[in-house]
Design a binder for these strands. Structure first.
Lengths: 332, 332
DNA sequence: CCATAAAATACTCAAATTGAGTATAATAGG
DNA sequence: CCTATTATACTCAATTTGAGTATTTTATGG
């Protein structure tokens, strides 16, 4: 990483010097048995769960090194791909009462790991990320959880004044494929933020000191702090990234079949793909190469085992799986 | 993402709790008379220049609000679009001597403004960003500055051992369109990082305490600290973004002709586009609508004046100008 | 040993998109 | 009126996409 220099010496009379604490936060993702999984921590003090996080320590040269250090120490996972997501710096972030507003700066990361180890601590668990975002999984068609959500969103729209109402309606139409718009799996963050604004996720009520009235689980399991928002960011980012960068392979074993690859992509994207076209794409793009081996039958005709063709990284600027959802699940 | 190596990784065994200073940093971009411009500050103490930056202050609720606040105060610019780029947090960033390594955290932003005001302070100047990246401007064809660069990069490749050599050669081929690869304007950061690693930009030498031997200006004007790297990040991000988000319009006046729009996109992307196809794209995507007015002749037949069609934001998830460079400049 | 299910793989084909033009219209300046 | 310059309309072949059908190769249950 680049050797960094000091930021420009502040030329402005410093009002109150902000000397906030800095946290690192990671959405650690893997994919097993057709589910995208994320590592969460159960907090022993209380009932909540959240993403693993740790402090930035002085001995780490860069943020990313610091992140890898404590993740590997705490969860005994070796991180593969790591990408910075966003830095959140809200004051008043540590809500809850009349405590002096303390700025908590959090640098959030997305990390991919190839295999889900049992997780170092007993409090760390791998969970399908759809547990937190049930409306994001369209692999078996439109998820039924959407009905109560759209319903409640509709009431939120109606509650607003003229101009704002139209705006809300259109944001919802776009994000939730309510009108003519098609489902766009990349808009995970937009959807979560809409639900938060509309007060339809538990975090929104919590941050206001309320309790969310029940919705039969349609709104998903909440996470501590803004961790669910970070996870939504991670999901959206990853879903976008697989289209132009071969990041899926960070989640695959050394050798795999094309169907396994497709199932992993589908798990992440939350949509089904057209099998024949998916293969055509993968082959045409030169993303994989033969291992020469054949898979131990997966239920039908045995499949070739392929591996990721690393050279593609050096050949083309944007190798990825610009996937288009197949209308019907698994045609052909 | 490719990262540069720290020249001096001094592992200092230090205690705990990093309580670093936090800086905000902005690449403020506009586009006038067919040039993409960025606001830089001339430092009175010394000869360098850099990006505007300021401290995060306690009274700002979010990072972005803090950023807007001091930018608007210091430069009297009103920021339109603002996007977080990256958070840099290297320790040892305060180079130069045996000073105690202090962590300086910097959150870098990209900001777009519609018109370049004379800039609040006399030390603030709008400059074409190609002054800092002469090799990035392909609008008049392959820039001649590339020749000495490729030449020097070639020597850097030759200087490496076998395995590393191949790697370098392929990174260069991809980033600089040296082999079969086509020029990819989005790879601005990758190119800058290669040049930094190869010691071909002044910052690399400076960070090592050397002086860069002359290259006739091919390597562009340096900036203080890592500001040129931040600018490269901003350029790459913006060039990518215009393809799927209508951000160019943040730089356009309320009414404009299609050619003006095209010239702005070309200025940002650093490549020429096929005029007729560009228009087809813009119209098909519904990005603009008629104002009914006609431009005061721009040299030939008068052109319709159009405006950005805001509704497109609500209709489609990824409205942008997925531009393809035209082989020849301005055909038709 | 045969029928059937489950995959894998091969091949087809029409529609849509893209890349690269040509053709024509409208203006200003001499 | 001729020329330069830009705007705009329209064409057309090549490529890419979306959505199939057809065929091959296994395992399995009678």
């Amino acid at each position: 990483m680049v050797r960094m220099q000091t930021p420009t010496p502040a030329p402005v009379p410093r009002g109150r010097a902000a000397s906030p604490s800095i946290g690192l936060n990671a959405a650690i993702v893997t994919a097993t048995t057709e589910e995208p999984r994320v590592l969460t921590i159960r907090f022993d003090h209380g009932d909540g769960e959240g993403l693993p996080s740790g402090p930035l320590e002085a001995e780490h040269r860069t943020l990313e090194i610091g992140l890898r250090a404590w993740v590997e120490r705490q969860t005994s996972q070796t991180l593969g791909y790591v990408e910075q997501l966003y830095t959140f710096g809200d004051r008043d972030r540590m809500a809850g009462g009349d405590a002096e507003p303390v700025r908590a700066l959090t640098v959030a990361y997305l990390a991919l790991v190839r295999e889900a180890r049992p997780a170092g601590s007993a409090d760390a668990v791998w969970q399908s990320w759809y547990r937190f975002f049930p409306w994001e999984d369209w692999r078996e068609g439109r998820p039924p959880q959407l009905d109560p959500i759209i319903d409640r969103l509709g009431r939120w729209v109606a509650a607003a004044a003229e101009a704002e109402r139209r705006l809300r309606a259109e944001r919802i139409a776009l994000a939730f494929a309510a009108g003519t718009a098609e489902w766009n799996e990349e808009l995970a963050l937009e959807r979560y933020e809409l639900l938060y604004e509309a007060g339809l996720v538990a975090e929104a009520a919590r941050d206001l000191g309320h309790i969310l009235s029940g919705d039969g689980g349609a709104s998903g399991v909440p996470l501590a702090f803004d961790h669910r928002r970070i996870l939504a960011t991670a999901i959206g980012r990853l879903r976008g990234k697989i289209k132009y960068r071969p990041v899926v392979f960070e989640l695959m074993p050394p050798a795999f079949t094309l169907l396994q690859l497709q199932r992993t992509v589908e798990a992440l994207a939350g949509v089904r793909l057209h099998k024949q076209n998916f293969r055509r794409l993968v082959e045409q793009q030169g993303l994989v190469e033969e291992t020469g081996e054949i898979s131990a039958a997966t239920g039908g005709r045995p499949a070739r085992l392929v591996r990721f063709r690393r050279e593609v990284l050096l050949e083309r600027p944007a190798p990825g799986l610009r996937l288009r959802a197949g209308r019907r699940a698994g045609t052909g």
